[in-house]
């Protein structure tokens, strides 16, 4: 807690320092940005953008989780399938997925489905990778004791594999959460008429610094807060 506060204070000092260095044409200072964000949050138009992004992100997250677990869990159970799939997924993870955006737009057209698809493309790979490695890393001792207890396949999966792999699966979901958010926002930056990403993109075009700063602050705050919550759960799961 103390470290967190120190860190936030440090970042605020750096921010204020940057403002003093770069000037008002480049960025707005912390206090003004917070005030402006409060102002934005008081307008109905901003909430429409927020709701649009929230909707796209929510659906994309559910899709990423369902697809990622749907791929990762069964593939992880089979050694050969996992050996085949792992490097492919790892390569896909390293691809700058933004270049696939035109293809997504050509397939889905402009609008909500394209954003959702683009968010899901980002989230699904880490979720699948972590689920796979979680299932693979279940200790052989546990599996052997399951066999000696004559547990059936369903029981082994339910009582051994799932709880043993859960921390790793959750880590995947945590990383998938942030990547899906990034993907959804990127999806909104092009070929979109609503959402926070669209708002950012138009603000760049108009050189509207207060809007850029306020939206960036809101996104960073949301991402950091969610990440802290998920990390806490993650650590608790790992401690068992």
């Amino acid at each position: 807690m103390r470290n967190g506060l120190l860190l936030v204070a440090g970042l605020l000092v750096v921010w204020q320092g940057l403002f003093a260095f770069a000037g008002a044409h480049a960025l707005s200072p912390p206090v003004d940005t917070v005030l402006y964000l409060g102002q934005l949050l008081g307008t109905a138009g901003f909430w429409e953008h927020l709701a649009e992004t929230g909707r796209a992100f929510g659906v994309a997250l559910v899709l990423s989780a369902a697809l990622g677990l749907g791929i990762g869990l069964p593939v992880g159970l089979n050694r050969l399938a996992a050996n085949v799939a792992e490097p492919m997924l790892a390569s896909a993870y390293a691809v700058p997925k933004i270049v696939l955006y035109p293809i997504v737009l050509l397939i889905f057209g402009i609008g909500l489905p394209a954003k959702i698809a683009f968010g899901a493309i980002h989230g699904v790979i880490p979720i699948a990778l972590f689920a796979m490695s979680g299932v693979r890393q279940v200790s052989p001792v546990l599996l052997r004791s399951a066999r000696s207890l004559r547990m059936g396949r369903a029981q082994t999966l339910r009582f051994i594999v799932w709880p043993a792999a859960l921390p790793e699966i959750f880590s995947g979901l945590r990383i998938g959460f942030s990547l899906t958010l990034i993907g959804t926002l990127l999806g909104e930056m092009f070929g979109s008429q609503k959402g926070l990403g669209y708002l950012l993109m138009t603000a760049i075009g108009l050189q509207n610094i207060p809007v850029i700063m306020a939206v960036t602050l809101l996104l960073v705050l949301f991402a950091a807060a969610m990440s802290v919550v998920l990390l806490t759960v993650d650590r608790r799961l790992r401690r068992g």
């Binding site: 770069a22 959460f177 942030s178 926002l185 950012l200 996104l219 991402a223």
Partner: peptide, 17 residues
């Protein structure tokens, strides 16, 4: 929490700077 933050959100600022 670093990688949870959408770094691209800072890109507009960098362009201005």
């Amino acid at each position: 929490t670093y990688y949870a933050i959408p770094v691209y959100a800072f890109y507009p600022l960098f362009i201005v700077l």
